[in-house]
Deep mutational scan, measured.
Amino acid sequence: MKVIFLKDVKGMGKKGEIKNVADGYANNFLFKQGLAIEATPANLKALE
């Protein structure tokens, strides 16, 4: 799943980066902790 990092995550990515991560990792950790959001077309447009 493609995500946009909202904060730096050690060993994974930096704020503003777009990366592919495992679905479970994104849903169970990154999204719940507020560290990333899904890289949807609307979210990608908002990032620009």
Rank of each mutant, 00 (worst) to 15 (best):
I4E: 00
G34F: 08
A39P: 02
E17K: 01
D8G: 07
I37L: 12
A46E: 15
V9K: 03
A22E: 14
K15Q: 10
G16L: 05
D8M: 04
A46Q: 13
K14Q: 09
E17G: 05
I4H: 02
K10I: 12
L6R: 02
A36K: 00
L30N: 01
F5L: 15
A36H: 00
N20Y: 14
G16P: 01
M1A: 05
N43E: 07
Y25M: 10
G13P: 00
G24R: 11
P41L: 08
K19C: 10
K32R: 13
K19T: 08
D23Q: 15
K2N: 10
V21I: 13
N28S: 15
N43C: 07
K7H: 12
Q33Y: 15
K19H: 10
P41D: 14
A22D: 13
L47F: 12
P41K: 12
A26V: 09
T40P: 03
I37G: 01
A36L: 04
E17I: 05
K32L: 12
D23A: 14
D8W: 06
I4P: 00
N28M: 11
L35Q: 05
G16Y: 07
I37C: 08
D8A: 09
K32G: 10
L44W: 03
I37F: 05
K15A: 12
A36W: 02
D8F: 05
E48W: 04
L44D: 03
P41E: 13
A39C: 08
K45M: 11
K45R: 12
N43P: 03
I37Y: 04
G16C: 08
P41M: 11
K45N: 11
A36C: 05
E38T: 06
F29E: 07
F29S: 05
A46C: 13
M1Y: 09
F29W: 14
N43M: 07
K15M: 11
K2V: 12
E17Y: 03
N28H: 13
N28F: 09
I18K: 02
A39G: 05
Q33D: 08
K2Y: 13
K2W: 15
K19S: 08
L35T: 06
V21F: 08
M12C: 13
K10A: 14
K15R: 10
A22P: 15
G34H: 12
F29N: 06
A42R: 05
N27E: 15
M12V: 15
V9Q: 02
F5E: 00
E38W: 07
V21H: 01
L6G: 01
N27R: 14
K14R: 14
K45I: 11
A36Q: 01
M1R: 08
P41I: 10
K2T: 09
Y25W: 12
P41W: 06
I4R: 02
Q33A: 07
I4F: 09
I18V: 11
A39F: 05
F29T: 06
A39I: 04
G34L: 08
N43L: 11
A36V: 10
G13W: 08
V9W: 06
Q33N: 12
L30A: 01
L44I: 15
N27V: 15
N28R: 10
K19Q: 08
F29P: 02
I37T: 04
A46N: 14
A39V: 07
F5P: 00
K19N: 04
K7W: 11
A36R: 00
G34T: 03
D23G: 06
E48S: 10
V9L: 07
K10E: 13
N43T: 09
G34M: 13
N20C: 15
K15P: 06
K32Q: 10
V21Q: 02
G24Y: 08
G11V: 02
I37R: 07
Q33T: 06
L30Q: 01
I18T: 05
A46R: 13
T40K: 00
N28P: 07
K10D: 14
F29Y: 13
K19L: 05
G34P: 01
A26Q: 06
A26L: 09
A22C: 05
N27D: 10
K15G: 04
E38M: 08
E38Q: 11
K2Q: 08
E38A: 14
N28A: 12
D23S: 13
K7E: 14
T40G: 03
G13V: 03
K2R: 11
V3I: 11
A36Y: 02
N43R: 04
M1N: 03
Q33G: 12
K10C: 13
A46V: 13
V3F: 01
G24D: 15
E17V: 06
A22I: 12
E38P: 11
G24H: 13
F31D: 01
E48F: 13
G16S: 02
N20K: 14
G24P: 10
D8T: 10
L44R: 03
D23E: 10
L6I: 15
T40W: 03
G13A: 12
L6N: 01
K19W: 09
V9F: 04
L6T: 06
T40D: 05
E48P: 10
G24E: 15
P41Q: 11
G11D: 10
A22M: 11
A26S: 05
F29D: 13
L47P: 05
T40A: 04
V9H: 04
I18W: 08
G16T: 03
N20V: 10
G24N: 12
A39Q: 02
A26K: 06
V3M: 02
L44A: 03
G24V: 08
F5N: 01
N20H: 14
K10N: 09
L30E: 01
K2D: 12
K2F: 12
K15N: 04
E48H: 15
D8I: 04
D8C: 04
F31G: 02
T40N: 11
A39E: 02
L6W: 02
K7I: 11
G24W: 13
I18Q: 08
L30V: 02
K14D: 07
G13K: 00
Q33K: 07
G24M: 12
N20F: 15
Y25K: 06
F31E: 01
E17H: 03
M12F: 14
I37A: 03
I4V: 09
L35K: 04
L30W: 04
G13N: 00
L44H: 03
A26C: 10
G34N: 09
A26H: 07
K14H: 11
V21D: 01
V3A: 01
V9N: 01
E48Y: 08
V21N: 00
A46H: 14
F29R: 09
P41Y: 11
A22V: 10
L47V: 07
F31S: 01
L44S: 03
V9S: 01
D23M: 13
A42Q: 12
G11K: 06
Q33M: 15
K7L: 05
N28G: 12
D23K: 15
N28Y: 09
E48V: 10
G16V: 00
F5Y: 08
A22N: 13
K2P: 09
E48T: 14
Y25E: 13
E17N: 01
D8P: 07
G24A: 12
A36S: 01
A46F: 09
L44G: 02
A42C: 15
D23F: 12
G11R: 04
L35S: 04
N28D: 09
K2L: 13
V21A: 01
Y25P: 06
N20R: 14
G16K: 03
G13Y: 07
P41R: 07
A39Y: 08
K7T: 11
K15T: 10
E48R: 06
I18R: 02
D23Y: 15
L47W: 13
L47N: 06
A42Y: 09
N20L: 13
N27G: 08
F5S: 00
A36M: 03
L44F: 04
F5T: 00
K19E: 04
K32D: 07
N27K: 14
I18G: 01
K15S: 06
L30I: 04
K14I: 11
K7A: 12
A22L: 11
K7D: 10
V21P: 00
A46G: 12
A46P: 04
K32H: 07
T40E: 04
E17Q: 13
Q33R: 14
D23T: 15
F31Y: 07
N27Q: 14
A42P: 06
K15Y: 07
E48I: 12
M12W: 14
K10F: 13
E17M: 08
M1K: 09
K32I: 14
K15V: 09
A46L: 14
E38Y: 08
A42M: 05
I18N: 02
E17A: 08
N27T: 11
V21T: 03
F31W: 02
G11M: 06
T40S: 11
G11S: 08
G11N: 03
P41H: 11
A36N: 00
L6E: 01
L35R: 03
L47D: 04
K14F: 12
V3C: 03
Q33W: 15
K14V: 13
Y25N: 06
K7Y: 12
L30C: 02
K2S: 14
M12Y: 10
Y25Q: 08
N28C: 10
A22T: 08
K14M: 11
K32A: 14
A42G: 12
K10T: 15
V3S: 00
K7Q: 13
L6P: 01
N28Q: 11
Y25C: 00
A42H: 12
V3E: 00
G11T: 08
D23V: 15
G24C: 14
A46Y: 13
V3Y: 01
E48G: 10
A22G: 08
